[in-house]
Amino acid sequence: MTELLRLKDVEKSFTLHNQDGITLPVFKGLTMQAHAGECVALAGPSGMGKSTLMRMIYGNYLCQGGQVEVLHKGDWVDIAKANARDILQVRRWTLGYISQFLRVVPRVSTLNVVAEPLIMRGVDGGTARDQAAAMLTKVNLPESLWHLAPATFSGGEQQRVNIARGFVADYPVMLLDEPTASLDQTNREAVLDLIRTSKAAGRALVGIFHDADTRAAVCDREFSIGDFKVSA
């Protein structure tokens, strides 16, 4: 299988300069890969650094050492060393991230929030909104909500907006931070379908899923972060 994401000797620690300069080690020597067509579950108890690792892959957290390489338009880009402009290009075309919480500009309608990743790629507004509408339909978000800003939505509705926004752009590599956490059975099933479709389309997915049923339903293997834990 084709590798789309590969991490080698990744190291992370946090230094808190304003709290006596204390350094909190997270992990060290972490090595993993994700291939086209698979969904890898990051496993380990809370506080082990699963979300941290995901943010490092996305370039949101810095690496203290090692490489985080993403296959971007045929070339490997090391997120750990790439400059900001290159990381933004990788995010625009290759790397998607569905975080636990939706963070958007106030006042922007749901339809435009979801269409934005496509518009950033230069897709015209009409086409982008059509695709956004199709994706919102897939996650069962009622059409009556599409023209409202998501700030006042319930947790489950916001999460579905977030998921639609993440899946609308067909990123070859997807990072999912508890995508089904606040969803009921029907909506959870809709998200699992999106994951299955992505796998079938040859994308690589890395996710955090606390629910064992979800893991069993879509994940091909587990990756245990605890093996690389550094104790304080």
Partner: peptide, 8 residues
């Protein structure tokens, strides 16, 4: 990167 500087 903006989000990196603010988050880490």
């Amino acid at each position: 990167l903006t989000d990196q500087v603010l988050d880490d």
